[in-house]
């Protein structure tokens, strides 16, 4: 909170209450390309989403669907050669795509906290975890005293369920289990009371009994801070248990978005239906495979990118030729399917 740029995106109780109605994060028509010399491959194509304070939005899709790139575009932490080439990303009314590097640095780890999939690679193996949490605080508050940092680190580690926080702060990442490391990762993400937490498959690398602990912890952090959570996952079980809203991605596009109950009760895209049916542990028709392989960027089928694998559209000329637009079907429910009425549960 030392630079003027962070001011508009710093949470105040009033702002948080207000933004439950208006979006905290608003992404419009986001385009992300892989740029190699003259050639461009579209990886994310026209993604729009809104996320309100206190809300959990799940981004669901298979590998290569663009869900991680969408989230990383918000932070502007994209791999080399990958660029945002269109659209806007607004956090608290400020367009992050037009922010300078310095301004972005003030937002990352401050207004936005990031929890990554693998806490072992996200943490520095040579530095005690307490110092790493402390660095996250100091990076955004140069004038804070050592004693104040130490107190805040202990408070954070204790809040994420690390036993003996003062003593454990002096230990290195390798001395912790995967679950404990992910707790440290969450402590770092929460260090500056972010308004938005981006969690990219935060439990995929963890055992199932630890998964629930970590997701509970994220829920608690969200409830207590009023932060919004953008949760990236491929696991529909996690979606069912944690999401308020769900955005389903396929081949770089949003194919459906809805409130969680709506999505599971009344899916309106053939891909969502297929995903629900193939997930082990889904309630109906568990384990029904989707034929073929995921569409790959740069070699997308014509028309609807899902049509070659689709139960409904594989043989229909309209699905083969015409790209479906994302249309609103009901209350807060959009789908990009030519035949949403034929989708069943």
């Amino acid at each position: 909170m030392t630079t003027e740029m962070t001011e508009p995106v710093t949470a105040t109780p009033n702002a948080a209450a207000e933004s439950t109605r208006s979006a905290l994060l608003s992404v419009r028509d986001l385009q992300v390309d892989l740029v190699r010399g003259e050639s461009r491959t579209r990886l994310v194509d026209g993604v729009s989403l809104d996320l309100a304070a206190g809300e959990t939005l799940c981004l669901v899709g298979e590998s290569g669907s663009g869900k991680t790139l969408t989230a990383m575009s918000v932070m502007q932490l994209l791999p080399g050669g990958v660029e945002v080439t269109g659209g806007s990303v607004e956090l608290g009314g400020r367009d992050l795509l037009r922010a300078t590097t310095k301004e972005l640095r003030a937002v990352r780890g401050n207004a936005i906290g990031l929890v990554s999939q693998d806490p072992m690679t996200a943490l520095d193996p040579l530095v005690p975890v307490g110092v790493q949490v402390g660095d996250a605080i100091r990076a955004h508050d140069r004038r804070i005293s050592k004693a104040a940092i130490r107190a805040r680190v202990t408070e954070l580690l204790s809040a994420v369920g690390i036993p003996n926080p003062a003593a454990n702060a002096r230990r290195h990442p390798h001395e912790f289990s995967g679950g404990m490391r992910q707790r440290v990762g969450i402590a770092i993400a929460m260090a500056n009371r972010p308004r938005l937490i981006i969690a990219d498959e935060p439990t995929t690398a963890l055992d199932v009994t630890v998964q629930a602990q970590i997701l509970d912890l994220l829920d608690t952090a969200r409830r207590e801070s009023g932060a919004a959570v953008l949760l990236i996952t491929h696991d529909l079980g996690v979606v069912a248990e944690r999401a308020d809203r769900v955005l389903v991605m396929y081949a770089g596009k949003v194919v459906e978005q809805a409130d969680v109950l709506d999505l599971f009760d009344r899916p309106a895209h053939a891909y969502t239906e297929a995903l629900l049916r193939c997930s082990p542990g889904a309630t109906s028709g568990a384990g029904e495979p989707i034929p073929g392989t995921s569409a790959r960027a740069g070699a997308l089928p014509t028309g609807c990118a899902f049509h070659p694998r689709c139960r409904i559209g594989a043989d229909r000329p309209r699905c083969q030729q015409e790209t479906p637009a994302l249309l609103t079907l009901g209350t807060r429910h959009d789908s990009a399917c030519h035949y949403p009425a034929e989708v069943t549960r």
Binding site: Q211, D235, A240, E241, F264, G281
Partner: peptide, 19 residues
């Protein structure tokens, strides 16, 4: 602990979260 892909079971299912 295994998540169930049914949002209606939220809160109704007895959950044991190991510490």
């Amino acid at each position: 602990a295994a998540p169930v892909a049914d949002p209606r079971s939220r809160g109704t299912r007895q959950r044991i979260v190991l510490s």
